[in-house]
Design a protein around this nucleic acid. Sequence first.
DNA 1: GCCGTTTTCGGCCCGACTGTTTTCAGTCG
Length: 584
Amino acid sequence: MDNLTMARLLEQTADLLEIDGADGFRIRSYRNAAEAIAQTTADLAAICDDTAKLLEIPGIGKSMATNVKALVCTGTTPLRDQLLAKYTVSILELTRLPGMGPKTIALFWSAAQINSIDTLAVAIEAGKLADLPRMGAKQIEKIKKGIDDYRRSSGRFRIDQAQEAAEALTKYLLSFAGFDRVTPAGSLRRGRETAGDLDLLVTGPACQPDQTGPGVDYVAAYPGIADLIVKGENKVSFHLANGMQVDVRLLPGESYGAALQYFTGSKAHNVTLRQRALKMGYTLSEWSLARLDDESVVAAATEEEIYAALGMDWIPPELRENLGEIDAAVNRSLPRLIEERDIRGDVHMHTHETDGRNSIREMAEAAIACGYEYIAITDHSKALAMTNGLDEARALAHIQRIREVERELEGRVRIFTGIEVDILADGALDMDDEVLAQMDVVIASIHSRFDQSREETTARVLRAFENPNVRILGHPTGRQILRREPVALDMALILRRAAELGVAVEHNASPERLDLCDRDLRLAKELGCRIVINTDAHEIRTLGKMSFGVRQLRRAWLGPQDVLNTLPAAEFVSSLRTRPQTTA
DNA sequence: GCCGTTTTCGGCCCGACTGTTTTCAGTCG
């Protein structure tokens, strides 16, 4: 069982405990443990017999360690089985409906044996809920609508979709005279790979207390609103047509920093920060950091002031996941994180020779416009027939054209020759070695047979590594965010072997992939792997999407020294895997 | 159920909004 599955089962147990009316702190400890397990780079299935190692993970105590062992050995825990026997697993989907919390679910279950969205829908139609306490016509209408929405939408959105929505809204909001600053908070600001909703903070003269009426009305008049959820004094919530929920908050400038800090999260980061505030005699809210004794404000206008007053450096939003960043900020030892301008080259892109849309020359010109010193042209190999992948003869001709374009551009950009060669189902590469040996950048990627077992896929990748021409493992898990699950891989084993051989692993910055994910990137660094970040652009427009990947690298605590393509061209090539000298 | 710079017992983060309950519970973030 992998860590994420384990985390999901513990999270599920917490939900069931909550419906069951268990002690709130016990519930929280299950959630904390789930979070810790989802984030750790240790492979719990591998170390589950080593209780001491389990206890090293913050949030895992004696009885949670027992739970972990039970999950690995039996796939469940006694407590979970007991709760599921009472409620059935389908009751959990009720928590996905807006306005349905554990108390309401428990009420419905005890009053009408409702344990799924379907039985809830039937009960509403039969009018069974009308007599229950706190169930007025509005409440029931809200639940009905929630069921319809749930059945239509998946709930989460890719980060680029969230950003696009944020940019459109920001433009609209800034055209109102009383607003002068709009900042996205939440998952988008932290650079997560998906967002469940969009949080926008707004400040300006129209956001002063008791004067927010016109501003709120303006927000609520946004033409993109599909339906309005909440319209309060300083908050407007609504859905966009694609189902994305947006929360817009109007805030006075003097508490903007406190609000930005609060609504950026993560929740776990904020909880830890607040505990620290309390120990220091302060209380931290979305309005201010204030003294506990006389309630006087210590800091509120900027995040920098608040973190400084708490005795620590300002923490970049990407790190705010309660994974050690608070201690590091207190000790003044936060890392210098990589920035987009550190990236000197993009070495994974396609042209119209296969499934790209632009020529070598067009891609190169666009890369120059991005400020890159070098690129690599890495079209597909023949196994990807639908992309018109290259066979050996075409690949050799392509190399010649790449060199010609490089000469034409007269030193304005270095263009490496390359290929994204398929790793076939058995781990062999889809191109002759003597052709691969002529290329600067050979990226090996999986594009087929995603259904193989963990053992098969791991062996497949390890066999590909044995080919000395392989210099980079492309989009290692093959996942497509919200569309296709990652392939099953023994990631620690793969990364350890890559580190030994000097094979670099790619972070594919395309917002559809973001592969490796942040957690595996941290593991890669721990294991001494070299990392390369690429856009995998198929047209000039997507060359500009490097920033989505950079945010994932930052989330993994990576600095420029951890990423090969922050190096100048010559050093970049010489730090790729060195091939054995050919004897011929 | 976890944890320890006052604690191995007794703590464990804070406020807005909604609906319906005339004083507040539940949900959400």
